[in-house]
């Protein structure tokens, strides 16, 4: 592909970047858990504000007082020394009391934060350098499926996420939903949350995990329960067969040019395990682990030169004619 096409595609990517992600803020809680944490935080913030103000006021008054004029350093007033000692110890006792109370407030918050609901919807997330493998588990195997870099959850229903890592330590964090939890090599962790409102909430890896730690995001999409069921139903199915000629050509290229060695598209011969499952890539909101919006232009830019957008990631740059690139984009786009 000529350089000008590539840079043109990159330019196109840059334009629609806005609004492809939802909020990612601890200050904007959208779930029971994040609200609980904010509640605890506000209590701590209030106490801290009062303590700091008191310290500064006393310090200021102390500095402005005019004392000891003309006194030698060792001319001390013993009653003052004794009283100061008592005041200091009193303040020490007060500090102890404050931290004990705060410890209890914290522990209460912690208990409700980590309360477990046995009926929670369970999904498993496996961290990879630098993307998220997502597995929805159900009672029957035919109702379980794998996707990547995007989770969808029903509003109002507790969700349990089991966290594992395929390589180094990562951390699962959607601040609008709840606090973070690490994905640790050789161990399974668990986190639960219950979304309050429908919406798209951005999450991001919060434990340094190497070169592209900055580009390891994902979207958590909270849907109304009926929407969620519909989505799950659809996601569980195999990929749609391409009908348009260009898309068909794209499917062949996908197999022929090595894409299928790393990516799985259920229902086709593509069964690679190294990269994200792309069965329904056409209905996801982002690509490259939240790095770009899923638009044809962005897809093109990404496939044309993944190492420019996310240096160091595992996906190599494939030599493709621009026509071939467009066919592949077409194919992926229709994998709704």
């Amino acid at each position: 592909m000529p350089a000008w096409v590539r840079s043109g595609l990159l330019l196109l990517v840059a334009l629609p970047l806005v609004a492809c992600t939802g909020s990612q803020s601890a200050l904007d809680p959208q779930a029971l858990q994040s609200e609980q944490i904010r509640h605890t935080f506000i209590i701590f913030l209030g106490v801290s504000g009062i303590v700091w103000s008191c310290v500064i006021v006393v310090l200021g008054v102390g500095l402005l007082r005019r004392t000891r004029i003309g006194q030698a350093p060792l001319e001390l007033r013993l009653p003052f020394e004794a009283r100061a000692g008592r005041v200091i110890l009193g303040l020490g006792a007060t500090t102890t009391l404050i931290v004990l109370v705060l410890s209890f407030v914290s522990y209460a918050g912690q208990r409700s934060l980590f309360a477990k609901d046995p009926d929670a919807l369970t999904l498993k997330i496996i961290g990879h350098q630098w993307w998220w493998e997502v597995r929805y588990k159900a009672d029957s195997p035919h109702n379980s499926f794998t996707t990547a870099n995007e989770i969808r959850i029903p509003v109002g229903k507790p969700v349990k996420v089991e966290l594992e890592s395929a390589d180094v330590i990562h951390s699962f964090w959607v601040p609008s939903l709840t606090g973070k939890m690490d994905l640790i090599t050789g161990q399974t962790n668990e986190i639960q949350f219950t979304a309050r409102n429908p919406g798209i909430y951005r999450g991001q890896c919060a434990e340094f995990c190497g070169l592209q730690h900055a580009h390891m995001a994902f979207a958590a999409i909270a849907l109304r329960p009926d929407e969620f069921e519909r989505w799950r139903e659809h996601e569980n199915q195999s990929a749609v067969n391409p009908t348009a000629p260009l898309a068909k050509q794209g499917e062949e290229l996908f197999r022929g040019r090595g894409c299928a060695l790393c990516h799985t598209i259920r229902g086709t011969l593509a069964g690679g395990q190294l990269g994200p499952d792309l069965t329904h890539i056409g209905s996801r909101t982002t690509i490259a682990a939240g790095t770009l919006p899923r638009t044809p232009a962005a897809l093109g830019a990404w496939i044309a030169d993944p190492q420019h957008i996310k240096p160091g990631n595992l996906m190599p740059r494939m030599p493709l004619q621009s026509g071939e690139l467009i066919a592949i984009i077409q194919y992926l786009e229709q994998l709704k």
């Binding site: 601890a26 994040s34 609980q36 944490i37 605890t40 935080f41 701590f44 913030l45 801290s48 705060l102 407030v105 914290s106 522990y107 918050g109 912690q110 934060l113 951390s171 601040p175 709840t178 606090g179 973070k180 939890m181 919060a206 434990e207 340094f208």
Partner: peptide
């Protein structure tokens, strides 16, 4: 604040 487990889960790292 960061010593508190719930707050730390948000602000850690």
């Amino acid at each position: 604040m960061v010593a508190s487990v719930p707050i730390d889960t948000q602000v850690h790292d």
